[in-house]
């Protein structure tokens, strides 16, 4: 399809990017373009200006910073997938990145783009939510750190303000076991339901595509804290959650899947 008319500029630095995005209220950042361009082609997004941050190579890195790993927002999925550092310290993130889209998507799409898009059906946001990651954003009023739990607000809505740029994702180390269950019909698709389970001290469980944004399973986590069995905790997985219905699954079936997949994920943890 044909997108609406828009202007396009390349950002030369983070400061330059912030300046350019501030120049136009309807401006949007573009990195890999794998979330934004489809929306533009359907004319569901009609930015008047695209600020391309694809050239900001200093935002592409994966660093060991002691108690956490720092991942630059422009790091592509394929780099997350194949990073030896991540495979050693946070193998779950490499695994989840390997499930995003298809090889072409993974070579263009970036972790920052996926997080900033905030799609409840994407794999990485829910995984980062379970991992208790936090997002570093810079804007006109400086740099701030936003915990994942406060970052994802609603349908394609995050805590980022329009003039802020996501620059880094911080992920704590110390994961003793993990499981990620992606249930879909075709390999390249978004999850119909996904479950990320992480043991890092306590056990955290997050869902893909069970709501308008990535969600933590408070029912399951509460149950586990109070000593419930895996079966009992899984049965409470979808407590308080009303997942959407679409062509791939009804809300009722999503609830059922969430329980089954949570049980299987928890079994893998123990």
């Amino acid at each position: 399809m044909y997108p609406s008319k828009f202007d396009y500029v390349r950002a030369l630095s983070v400061d330059d990017a912030l300046e350019k995005i501030a120049s136009d209220e309807e401006a949007k950042f573009i990195a890999g373009g794998h979330s934004l361009v489809p929306l533009m082609k359907f004319r569901l997004a009609t930015p008047s200006l695209l600020v391309d941050i694809g050239g900001l190579h200093d935002l592409s890195y994966i660093k060991d910073e002691g108690d956490h790993l720092a991942i630059g927002a422009l790091t592509r999925h394929t780099e997350v997938e194949h990073s030896q550092l991540l495979q050693a310290e946070l193998p779950m993130l490499s695994y989840v990145a390997s499930l995003v889209g298809d090889p072409q998507v993974r070579h263009r799409g970036t972790i920052g783009g996926s997080v900033a898009h905030g799609d409840g059906a994407s794999d990485l946001p829910a995984a980062l939510l379970a991992l208790d990651a936090s997002m570093i954003a810079v804007g006109p009023s400086g740099r701030r750190e936003i915990p994942a739990k406060e970052f994802f607000k609603g349908f394609l809505e995050t805590a980022l303000s329009p003039d802020e740029l996501l620059v880094e994702i911080k992920v704590p180390k110390g994961v003793s076991s993990w499981s990620y269950k992606k249930f879909n019909r075709r390999a390249q698709d978004w999850a119909i339901v996904g479950v990320a389970a992480v043991k890092n001290g306590s056990t955290k469980v997050a869902f893909v595509n069970m709501g308008s944004s990535p969600l933590r399973s408070t029912g399951c986590e509460d149950a586990l804290r109070s000593g419930a069995t895996i079966e009992e905790a899984a049965e409470r997985a979808a407590e308080g959650i009303e997942p959407p219905s679409d062509l791939n699954a009804s809300s009722e079936f999503r609830v059922h899947l969430a329980k089954v997949l949570t049980r299987r994920a928890l079994e893998e943890l123990s």
Binding site: D102, R185, R186, A187, L247
Partner: peptide, 28 residues
């Protein structure tokens, strides 16, 4: 296993795009 042109009761085709119309690939 995958494909169906789904219409609602008002005659709207709900899945004309390849994001929703599930053409399988070699991976499956």
């Amino acid at each position: 296993l995958y494909e169906e042109a789904v219409y609602d009761r008002d005659g709207n085709l709900l899945n004309p795009s390849l994001a929703d119309y599930l053409v399988p690939s070699a991976a499956e």
